[in-house]
Design a protein around this nucleic acid. Sequence first.
DNA 1: ACCCAGGGTCATA
DNA 2: TATGACCATGGG
Length: 223
Amino acid sequence: MEPQATPGLLNTIYDRLFATYGRQYWWPAEEPFEVMVGAILTQSAAWRNAEKAINNLMAAGAMSPAAIRRLSVTELGRIIRPCGYFNTKAVKLKALADWFGSRGDDMNELHAADTGSLRRELLAVHGIGPETADSILLYAAGKPVFVIDAYTRRIFSRLDLLPQKENYDACQRLFTANLAADTALYNEYHALLVRLAKEACRKQPLCKNCCLGDICCYDKGGS
DNA sequence: ACCCAGGGTCATA
DNA sequence: TATGACCATGGG
């Protein structure tokens, strides 16, 4: 049983968001490897803090797989300290760099790889779960994979399009079953959802006055 | 002082 | 398989 939504509703939501906020220019990184590093550093951390850690890495000349392989966990942790969980994330970064090295440090190969097998490979890397893997697939490898994060879950459960507790793959299916498999669309959609969650009320991720107000379940039960 | 931020791993039942 | 503890800094 695939998740059901009124046909076209997910496209309508996207159109509203885009009309309201415009392009978000994600992922905020130049190099694909920097996207992968950022995806790990921002885990359960404010992007602002992940960005500080990224800047520290670049200032230390450590924004490369080889440099990360060379540094000790302790040294790496010192560099990425501002993003929090720095010891944990230092281990994760080294696992990422090791895995990337096993593929020849070659980003072109990731673009050419089969999406399904690449996803399984990423999930096997220590520190990479479903969301991080999909962020890498979408924003670094250019694959049409929809990223599900806490914001997406909150917004769409608020819209009554997802249950409050639902597993990752089922959430993802709502989008892939109702949208064309378009990398540019998935890229912008996820970025816009993050924007909405930040822009609209924080505690109550959808307010009546936001651009989705009349779609939201606030209006259900009639007037 | 408290809450949360663009999660994931590991141990336990 | 499904919870819960744990990881830790910085801004509101």
